[in-house]
Design a protein around this nucleic acid. Structure first.
Lengths: 343, 343
DNA sequence: TTTAGCACTCTCGTGTTGAGAGTGCTAAAA
DNA sequence: TTTTAGCACTCTCAACACGAGAGTGCTAAA
């Protein structure tokens, strides 16, 4: 679809105005507010054209125009200019990361919080992980007579804990020895690699190894890492969600991990780091997201550790600003990951 | 305030009916639905009395009655019978815990999910912790040239991670040695105990020890452990939250950790394990909770590890059922804690 | 190609009205 | 003394009507 410059201008202005007012935009309002050099009648004609193209729609015969989902899509695809975030905003965000605790979990929580606050919408961040679970370190801690706590550290900083009950009591010294042995031998191995080492261990060692392998398999089976959410209440202040049943559908997809993993798996999981994906109105596939838009990005180190992050808000969303924010936070996290979690 | 048996009955029935219908309850409706042996006129007289006592109120002159917050309080304090959860519900819940992964984090998430589903409201669970942070184990992992990952395990299973950048590169072997030494010497120590051991370590050991102490101090400063939430979308389906601005205020207190910690600190933190606290309509203190009730309990091992859990829903909440559920889940978690995390 | 003018349409806030549900009061019944 | 039937009264709520206001589409002129 090829639009004239004037049509592009009018579409842009209508979207801009509608994002602010949340109301249908009329031709004369537009001319008045933006000091257009042509008259409202001209605007009306162009509006009629844009409506024919499917980019605008009228809630009813004698109302102003509202952008359709296709209208937003055209806007995001062709008209939105990727403006960088203002310098002082960027500085504030960087500063927050700089002075937070030096811990991935903390960074991910902070990223979610920053996204939520900057975009005034709900945000999500998933922990970075590699396609294969790679062993880094194991620790075995005696807790009580026949019980031990296994702490497994994976590449990417993911930590898994698991209680194990043994047949017979065991001393911490013996445990430490096994843990050291495992940590040393299995270093940088994937599941298969660890399985191959099995014969080298005694009975107890093999029991531990089974738990270890099981944990790593579980990690690989789940498509995303730990999920951090923030700003769920932000979307509740948007007028389109004033009847809260609408909001319920939208937020439910965030709260239900399986739904969210599905969404991420079929969109951003196989996209490139650095790229931004914008889902508008569920794109016909996601019934629960019919009233929302989602801006998603992938961050991390393309070949090793990646995670997703994004923002969920109403379709009437300031896409330029949101895209810039998501993009910037993704970059910050990518930097942190490659500086701290690389091979 | 001393009520006659009939007044108690009528108050109970009105609350019961109102919880189901979410509507004001009229005298004749009550007689019809519950086959009362006395007439609607009698009910009207008693209603007038209960209104004088402050337990009921009329939204407007010619409407039915609605329980006041004091009415609910009297009900919860004097009339609610602490019924145990149905056997099969109890079995289902126990079964879920039984077949989950053997990991505290998993149990806490599951507890939040069970609470949310059973009560159809929002739920919260905080990780168990002791008043003093007690050292259990430390692990140091070389990640890249001059950077190490410190993994600190505290009593209660809490795991803290932190990246540390050193002056000079170091080998994993040396790190393991320091870690073993620390783990051995500091075992079961609190912050003060660890500080006393400081002279025994070399320069690097002391640097690690500083980070360690700092982490433990941070843990002690925060009043609650990690917070797990679930079922936020449940409350959005209640009619009293149909205008979502109402829901926003309520859910905001859950989403903002500092607010929630405040709430917990001033209510359930200093109550006994096993006891249940019910906050109705914010009790005049919590402005954000004016429209909600919160049922809270403390779980864990009274002298060592305790955490909080609870449910947030509309004031018009099935208190008997909710109290039973919260109480049961608290017991389940207490058992798990004492079986797995004790000294 | 653009624009002024105009008739037309639809929403939205306001006011009115009648049905329905529920109350409080009074006087009679138990 | 307590309970109940009867009744007038009150208030909400849904339905309907109506006019103002905003905006449109079309036509004819610039």
């Amino acid at each position: 679809m090829r639009l004239t410059d004037r049509q592009k201008l009018i579409l842009t202005l209508i979207i801009h105005e509608h994002i602010h007012s949340a109301q249908p935009v009329g031709s004369s309002t537009l001319v008045r507010k933006y000091d257009l050099t042509f008259s409202s009648a001209t605007v009306r004609n162009e509006m009629a054209n844009l409506t024919d193209y499917g980019f605008l729609r009228q809630p009813h015969t004698s109302a102003g125009r509202v952008p359709t989902e296709d209208g937003y899509r055209y806007f995001v695809g062709n008209l939105v200019q990727k403006s960088a975030l203002p310098t002082n905003t960027r500085r504030t965000i960087t500063h927050q990361f700089y002075q937070s605790r030096q811990d991935i979990e903390q960074w991910l929580k902070l990223a979610a919080s920053v996204l939520a606050n900057q975009s005034q919408a709900a945000s999500l961040v998933t922990a970075p992980r590699s396609e294969k679970a790679i062993f880094k370190h194991i620790e075995l801690i005696a807790t009580r007579a026949r019980q031990i706590l296994l702490v497994l550290v994976l590449m990417g900083g993911e930590v898994r804990q698991q209680f194990i009950t043994l047949e017979e009591p065991i001393q911490q010294e013996a445990l430490s020895k096994i843990a050291n042995q495992l940590s040393h031998l299995c270093h940088q191995c994937d599941v298969d690699g660890i399985q191959r080492l099995r014969p080298q261990f005694d009975l107890l060692g093999q029991e531990i190894l089974d738990v270890l392998v099981n944990e790593m398999t579980l990690v690989e089976k789940s498509t995303t890492g730990e999920i951090y959410l923030d700003g769920m209440t932000n979307v509740l202040s948007e007028p389109e969600f004033s009847e809260s049943s609408q909001a319920r559908h939208a937020l439910h997809i965030l709260e239900e991990p399986s739904l969210l993993e599905n969404l991420l798996a079929s969109t951003v999981m196989n996209s490139d780091v650095g790229g931004i994906q914008v889902l508008i109105g569920g794109e016909g596939t996601w019934e629960e997201l019919r009233q929302c838009s989602v801006v998603l990005a992938r961050y991390g180190d393309p070949n090793t550790l990646t995670g997703s992050l994004g923002v969920l808000g109403p379709i009437r969303m300031p896409y330029d600003r949101t895209i810039s924010t998501v993009s910037f936070v993704a970059n910050v996290l990518s930097d942190l990951v490659s500086q701290n979690l690389g091979t």
